[in-house]
Write a protein that binds this DNA or RNA. Structure first.
Lengths: 209, 209
DNA sequence: ATCTTTACTGACCAGGTGGTCAGTAAAGGA
DNA sequence: TCCTTTACTGACCACCTGGTCAGTAAAGAT
């Protein structure tokens, strides 16, 4: 499928992929222009389609590469697995925040992929994400200290609630992440983590004995 | 600005507005096609621009009309204002769910307006929403029973947390709302409300004495 | 030196976009 | 009856889209 592309020098590959990623990250799948991509990458129009066949296949290729990089980055989170649910989620969220700040293009790319994507490629995305999403969930439950929870609490529901809050925070800061200066990055990670901690403190009191 | 349009018979106005609203609701601002609108409404292309001037001005006109209808619908929520934060939010959310189900086009239209809108009209939207959003917030604080909260709790932060959860639930069901059958509507309202109640129960225990 | 294969190119295509404006037809005035 | 004004129309415009494919130039084979 992509053998024409994979035959060219790796640094050339990287340059082209970066250009396309930027364009997709900036505008989402549909509004991203292949014309703009070839201009960014400084390659002829025909070459892009010679390498990737179609806009859709280019996009899916980028998704695969991006998921690889995201998974690799997030694997840090598995080095240290606190047994407390909130510690665990806080640890993981912090790494996710770092990813969003260190790799804004990649993060924006994912963000658009999840919310601004046409139905025609939703199913392709699903199959690409689902394995990772499942693994992520499972690693959350593994070795979790369930003894701290109140007796009446449905732990799955509780975790769902925490996820809801986390997603909300991230989407609330999505706009800000775009315009962040590199030197403000660490500060923002701390700010986000603190905000989570604040909310978690309330949630903890609702869920723990 | 819109005097050409407002001179024509009201039922004709309504038909045209409905057609345009549908198209915007289905595809969002940018992907919505003025060609599709005139086809839907069965009017000539020139007429649409004779009435509204440009796609953007048509959109802003629709926004204004839609906000009117939304505010009118939500005003029900002010008839009964429980002093308990969670009762109040639950009551309001239920009405909002009803709105989303009874007026799916309008709801989708808003949904797209808030997340899928180009920067070039973000500021126009801001000015249109902000007054309403502020009023909505204020009515939430008015006459609220603050005595139930734990002493250490920052009430603003607590409310922020509840909003985060509410938004999350609504966005999680946004996809489902599109495909709902009219006779399943009430059922879904109950389901959503129950889900909120479940989460609220946990939050309550975290926030209340 | 000639032929063949491969990698690549960019002018071109059909189809879509928001928007325009000379022209028309009907209503109102003199 | 003629003239003006008003409301409206649709063919047309420039521009943009993803995608194609005949042609080219260089490398390799004989």
């Amino acid at each position: 499928m992509y053998e024409n592309f994979e035959r060219i020098p790796p640094d050339e590959q990287a340059r082209i992929l970066e250009s396309c990623l930027e364009e997709f990250a900036l505008h989402g799948y549909e509004k991203a222009s292949t014309n703009a991509m070839v201009k960014r990458a400084n390659i002829p129009k025909g070459t892009l389609f010679f390498y990737f066949g179609s806009k859709k296949d280019l996009y899916l290729y980028l998704i695969d590469r991006a998921v690889e990089r995201f998974v690799a980055f997030m694997s840090q989170a598995n080095d240290e697995l606190p047994s407390d649910l909130f510690e665990r989620l806080l640890h993981r969220s912090k790494i996710r925040f770092q990813f969003a700040i260190q790799e804004p293009n990649l993060y924006q790319f994912f963000y658009h992929a999840l919310i601004n994507t046409p139905e025609s490629i939703q199913s392709d995305l699903q199959s690409r994400y689902s394995t990772y999403a499942l693994a992520s969930r499972q690693s959350l439950y593994e070795g979790l200290d369930r003894s701290k929870f109140k007796d009446g609490i449905d732990i799955e529901q509780a975790i769902e609630l925490v996820y809801l809050v986390l997603e909300g925070i991230l989407s609330r800061y999505a706009g800000l992440l775009k315009k962040i200066q590199p030197d403000e990055g660490l500060q923002l990670v701390e700010k986000l983590t603190d905000e989570c901690r604040g909310y978690f403190e309330i949630l903890k009191q609702g869920m723990y004995k």
